Computed example of a mutant assay.
Amino acid sequence: MPPLLPLQLFKNLSDETRLSLVLLLREKGELCVCELVYILKETQPKISRHLALLRESGLLIDRRDGKWIHYRLSPHMPAWAAAIIEQAYLCQRDDILHLSQQAERDNATTNGKAVCM
């Protein structure tokens, strides 16, 4: 994979869905596709397409656990890219926490049933 260039990072983060995915993963560490779908209230194909773009650019890594795929930020991304993501996270932290907490409250109202079926 070629090294990540600033233009590629900014193109990836210019999309609201991709930015939200990256910031949620910064907040939570690792999330399953179905959790991301649930939190962002988007379709699975849309989320998966954006995750694939982020993975192909080297921002994310994934791991398979049975039929589920979990994503997290890549520890191999350049330090400058990680610093930009960290600054974006700090600027958007309240919004990301709100999204995450709302999903947790919604899950509580469904008797705590897992969102991944």
Rank of each mutant, 00 (worst) to 15 (best):
V115E: 00
Q8Y: 01
L23P: 00
Y89M: 12
V37N: 00
W80C: 11
L36V: 11
L53S: 08
T109L: 14
G66R: 03
L25E: 09
K113L: 15
T43L: 05
R72M: 13
R49M: 10
Y38A: 09
L73Y: 07
A114Q: 05
Q92S: 14
L73V: 13
L24D: 06
T110K: 07
A83T: 02
P3T: 13
A108C: 01
L5I: 06
A103R: 02
I61E: 15
D94T: 08
L97R: 14
C34L: 09
F10R: 01
S74V: 10
Q102N: 12
L60Y: 07
A82L: 03
G112A: 05
G66H: 01
L23Q: 05
G112H: 00
L36D: 09
W68K: 02
R72C: 13
R72Y: 06
L59Y: 01
L4P: 00
I96R: 02
I47K: 09
L31T: 09
K28D: 08
M1C: 04
Q87N: 13
N107F: 00
A82T: 01
L51A: 13
G66W: 00
K46V: 05
G112K: 03
L5M: 08
R63K: 15
L99W: 11
D95G: 11
V22H: 03
S100N: 14
A79G: 02
Q87D: 15
K67F: 02
H70I: 09
L90N: 07
L31N: 07
